[in-house]
């Protein structure tokens, strides 16, 4: 913690960054923080409660954040993959942001409840994450950590869904998606959902019905899954943000496994590695094209 705070103060004092975007204690556990001076830098924290992905704050549409000036962002390995995605897709220039990597052993499934990280309390997505620190960083802080061996309940659930008949799977997802009110929290917290004009907001023509009925919700979540295929960095923010508790991680996880199987691709923290959706290879699978 001292290392992170000292580095943040140094970056601010030397003018390398005008704001350090990290985490601080808030009224309900830790939350995103925007440190512009030494006092605020001294309030920065990093521990297993820091589940929030801070990469969305680099979105150019967040003009009030951009106005603070050149940012330094504290990134866990998954957050660094998100920043790599933004650089890869020309949304952020590498030289415009200072990246402070934190060594990460995973975050808590329930960050607000707090407690120590264990095989029982670790977030499901962290059970299958093999990255303890990122190479996409100007500075790396924290002590090296060992991965926790914990079986992925999410993968088990995906396998259960795969084993269902289409009718059972349909019933499952219709039940889950019936709770969606289309508040757009999943989209807004997603670091890779940065489109100026989301297809779901278009009205002429209206590709995606905005009504939160079965048809509209299915259209929206299918669209989101496809648009994030091979781009989703598994930061878990969509599922964490959903006020209706829809298990969106099951969708992103399934799509990621399809992309891995079919295109041999897993989004990493090297912006130079192209993603399947942004590149073409003569040996890409194409037998599904009619």
């Amino acid at each position: 913690m001292t290392e992170l705070r000292e580095l943040a103060k140094k970056l601010l004092a030397e003018g390398a960054a005008k704001v350090v975007i990290g985490w601080e204690e808030g009224p309900r556990g830790v939350r995103p923080a925007f440190a512009t001076d030494a006092a605020a830098a001294d309030r920065l924290v990093f521990d297993a409660r820091c589940a929030h992905d801070l990469a969305p704050y680099l979105d150019r549409r967040r003009v009030h954040v951009a106005k603070l000036g050149r940012p330094a962002v504290v990134v866990k390995p998954c957050d660094a993959r998100a920043v790599a995605g933004l650089i890869r897709e020309t949304q952020v220039k590498r030289e415009d942001v200072v990246l402070v990597g934190v060594r990460c052993g995973g975050v808590l499934a329930d960050p607000e409840a707090g407690g120590t990280l264990s095989a029982d309390t670790i977030a499901d997505r962290c059970r299958t994450c093999d990255s303890r620190e990122t190479a996409l960083a100007d500075h790396v802080v924290g002590t090296p950590v060992e991965p926790l061996a914990a079986p992925s309940r999410r993968d088990a659930r995906v396998a259960e869904l795969d084993a269902m008949t289409p009718a059972q799977r349909w019933a499952f997802w219709q039940g889950e998606l019936a709770r969606c009110t289309r508040c757009n929290a999943c989209r807004q917290v997603c670091p890779l959902c940065y489109c100026d004009r989301c297809m779901a907001d278009k009205t002429q023509p209206q590709w995606i019905e905005s009504s939160p009925h079965g048809r509209g919700n299915l259209s929206w979540h299918l669209l989101r899954a496809i648009h994030l295929a091979g781009r989703c960095v598994d930061c878990g923010e969509c599922e964490r943000a959903c006020p209706s508790g829809i298990p969106l991680g099951l969708i992103t996880r399934k799509v990621a496994s399809v992309v891995a199987d079919r295109f041999g691709h897993k989004p990493g923290d090297d912006p130079a590695v192209p993603s399947p959706i942004g590149t073409w290879r003569s040996d890409d699978p194409q037998e599904f094209i009619l």
């Binding site: 939350r31 995103p32 923080a33 925007f34 989209r187 807004q188 943000a241 959903c242």
Partner: peptide, 9 residues
């Protein structure tokens, strides 16, 4: 509003 994501949760 710095930390607000502009979602409608």
């Amino acid at each position: 509003s710095l930390r607000c994501h502009g979602c409608g949760a």
